[in-house]
């Protein structure tokens, strides 16, 4: 940090200063040009976006007509990009309904049909074979994930193993909802935890907070062959997700809120899965919870899962 003596002599300050100033101006111009070049990929990325999308409000602040406009825009985007006509619906939670899920570990054979059905139903990225369900092959004699394996690749069921599919537990006291800094994920009236894919900033704090490895991040734009796109989509559930946002199991709300069963349940060849409204005394799920010895995962964390496991006698 030596000082330039010329700057202390006002009499002489014209000559050297102007040369120095000229050099600095050249440096600044070069610098700006370099920054513009370095950040150029951002303009390529922004070319795909529009102002409406950028300014879109949080789902729960949208008026009905604003929602409709967004759904139509998303449908048009899908048509333009994949050439597929899709229908984006937005079924609302029904009064007097609280969903719960139960899974019979005695009869699950670990075939992963549920995980596959999830992938197809929910328009998951095909490159990574993404699914909201991970099936663990567990050792008999305890429920110890430390000894479990989710990457098994051999015929099932193995005689000395049992199988444990894990997906979002739709916790009543959900750590992911608490973690989100911008309320991009919340619990709906019927107990389902959803994500507004157009609001999420992709910080992944919810993914760190989830004790059940239930959340997934779109590390890149999901790729699905046009002919495999499921056209029946829900705004808060299985529509094709944008790059850089979180997603998760929604108990197939676009189906279940309209009286159908989740895709994973329909795909199960052994009938291990039970789904329904626990507020309905006649429901099968209610019967299972009242009559079977059920348990939930990591009960000690106080998350109050809505996903129950049980064994037959």
């Amino acid at each position: 940090m030596t000082t330039n003596p010329a700057t202390h002599l006002p009499v002489l300050d014209n000559q050297p200063n102007s040369r120095r100033g000229f050099m600095k101006a050249c440096g600044a111009t070069l610098g700006l040009a370099a920054w513009a070049t370095a950040l150029k990929p951002l303009t390529e990325w922004a070319a795909d976006m529009n102002v409406d999308e950028f300014l879109q409000k949080h789902y729960r602040e949208l008026k009905p007509d604003e929602k409709q406009a967004i759904f139509r825009r998303l449908e048009a985007d899908c048509k333009a990009e994949h050439g597929v006509d899709v229908k984006i619906a937005d079924p609302q939670p029904n009064d007097g309904v609280q969903f719960a899920y139960a899974l019979n570990l005695s009869i699950c054979i670990g075939c992963r049909k549920c995980a596959e059905a999830c992938s197809i139903e929910n328009n998951h990225d095909r490159k990574t074979n993404n699914s909201y369900i991970r099936v663990f092959e567990m050792e008999m004699g305890g429920i110890d994930f430390e000894k479990g394996d989710a990457t098994y690749d051999h015929p099932v069921p193995q005689p000395d193993k049992f199988y444990m599919p894990v997906q979002c537990q739709q916790c009543e006291n959900a750590p992911c909802v608490k973690a989100c800094p911008i309320e991009a994920t919340w619990q709906e009236k019927d107990g389902i935890v959803v994500v507004d894919y157009n609001w999420c900033i992709g910080c992944r704090y919810c993914e760190a907070a989830c004790p059940y490895h239930a959340r997934r991040f779109n590390w890149e734009k999901p790729t699905i062959p046009a002919e495999e796109i499921n056209p029946n989509q829900g705004y808060l559930s299985n529509r094709i997700r944008p790059q850089g946002v979180m997603e998760k199991c929604t108990f197939c709300l676009h189906r279940t809120r309209e009286g159908r069963m989740p895709a994973c349940l329909e795909a199960c060849p052994t009938g291990a899965r039970v789904f329904g409204n626990i507020l309905d005394p006649q429901s099968e799920i209610r019967w299972v919870i009242e009559n079977k010895r059920t348990f939930v995962l990591k009960e000690e964390l106080g998350t109050k899962p809505r996903f129950y496991y049980f064994f037959d006698e």
Binding site: G202, C203, P242, G244
Partner: peptide, 11 residues
């Protein structure tokens, strides 16, 4: 670390 820095204003 944000997947969607364009949505920074949501914060």
């Amino acid at each position: 670390d944000l997947g969607r820095p364009d949505r920074f204003w949501h914060l």
